[in-house]
Design a protein around this nucleic acid. Structure first.
Lengths: 247, 247
DNA sequence: TGTGCCACAGTAGCATGCTACATGTCAAGG
DNA sequence: CCTTGACATGTAGCATGCTACTGTGGCACA
């Protein structure tokens, strides 16, 4: 919690104080400043951020709603540790949502879209060179957002956004990454190429491969870290894959 | 807002007051007691429910997060009118999520599941006879929940739950229904049959047909009611349907 | 030493006080 | 008649007061 309250309030552009606290808390969780399984209290957080308890409590309620924290009555609240099973759920859902979206995007991709996707890739590599993880993640997110956004379905976009955030907290916790940022960027290349060539099937396949690969690496890493592997389903990726073409 | 505060507090079983207010507000929106586009205030609602402003505000924040209401600073809040486009988005997402779930459910359906599904159907018809819409909806919901739950993916279940709620508010507003409750119940028959026979493709097809049909009827009804048809996509259902079987 | 008990500190949840701001009203001035 | 602007009203957002409850640590007692 490096921020102090005065800074929070100074850049007060339309956003409510609660919104800013939400952002601060998400960031704090992301960088590991708020650790899972530890009891915190609204009092202490409010004091640290130099704001009153109300906006902190409201922010916590939002995060609790999103499943990131849990209140314990008269005791405090905990940052929830995302279970391996949850991670599997997230990637299963992303498969269900993003693979068809990629298929659709390839079908009706405009030149503008392709250009934007290519720019994303470039920015990802540039960020990789600078080891600027934040910028990298932002462009990774943007790329997926562009693909999903082609559907015109805003709920779809925000939904996947939320799903991505759940797993973001996990990846950041590990310094010893299983692959470099360049590797991750490269993995998006086939997807962008397929969309550029309007090859629907290939785009869907590329997206599918990408999500499964990313998910599996994350799962492997979590298991290696000694996380409880109960409820693990080794064939999580095949769970829904045989999605029939019922027209 | 038929409830008064004392009743709210009397059945205080573990749930916080905020939770109870959320339920009361959802119910109020559902039955049309809180109408869209009207300005309300936390003060007035709190007075009506005989609770303080805090739990009401916290409840409103939850609903605002779910996209059901919107706060307007220093003015009040409005119940949001779900646009036709949003309805399309919801049914598109349900297609993406529920069709594969039905496929999967048919694949690994237990006898217990089939029995439960059949019981749901019976209860739906019984509720239809009694014109008990609430009971009917609950069993309709339960049936879909059972199908989705077979996947073991809890996020999937709660996600679809949320999506269903968005459209529930619309259907309830219209007395002149385009189909009877029995019709709706009957529409689930092929799905249950297909699952009972472990026919995956047929189950997926039945679910797909059901969702598209329900969605289209709702959309037609909204247009007939004179709702703004801008942003309408006549082929919304085909948007993602050609979901390739990439294995 | 082991065990039950109580006082204590700390908390979420709820109630209420306070303030800046947005909007409608209405009267004065063009 | 139309415009303008001070004023009244009502609100969200934020701050703070209050209470019932929960886990803990120490103390008396067996």
């Amino acid at each position: 919690m490096a921020d102090d309250g005065s800074m929070l309030k100074s850049l007060n552009n339309g956003l409510t104080l609660t919104d800013q606290v939400v952002a601060a808390l998400r960031e704090a969780i992301l960088v590991g400043e708020l650790q899972p399984d530890t009891l915190y209290s609204v009092y202490r957080i409010a004091e640290e951020l130099n704001v009153s308890r109300t906006p902190v409590r409201e922010a916590m309620l939002r995060l609790a709603d999103a499943g990131m924290v849990r209140f314990e009555r008269n005791r405090g609240f905990r940052v929830l540790r995302t279970s391996i099973h949850e991670v599997q759920e997230v990637f299963q859902l992303r498969l269900l949502l993003e693979v068809p979206a990629a298929y659709r995007a390839a079908y009706e991709a405009t030149d503008t879209l392709v250009k934007s996707l290519r720019e994303c890739l470039i920015h990802m590599h540039l960020a990789a060179v600078d080891h600027d993880e934040l910028r990298f993640m932002n462009h990774d997110r943007l790329l997926h957002e562009l693909v999903l956004g082609t559907s015109g379905n805003k709920k779809l976009v925000s939904l996947v956004e939320d799903l991505r955030f759940v797993t973001m907290t996990l990846g950041a916790s590990t310094v010893d990454r299983s692959r470099t940022l360049h590797d991750i960027a490269d993995e998006h290349q086939p997807l962008v190429d397929a969309i550029a060539q309007r090859d629907r099937v290939e785009a869907a396949y590329a997206m599918r491969f990408h999500i499964i690969h990313t998910g599996q690496l994350l799962l492997d890493q979590l298991i290696k870290e000694g996380r409880d592997p109960s409820g693990l389903n080794p064939s999580w990726a095949e769970f829904f894959t045989t999605n029939p073409d019922v027209t």
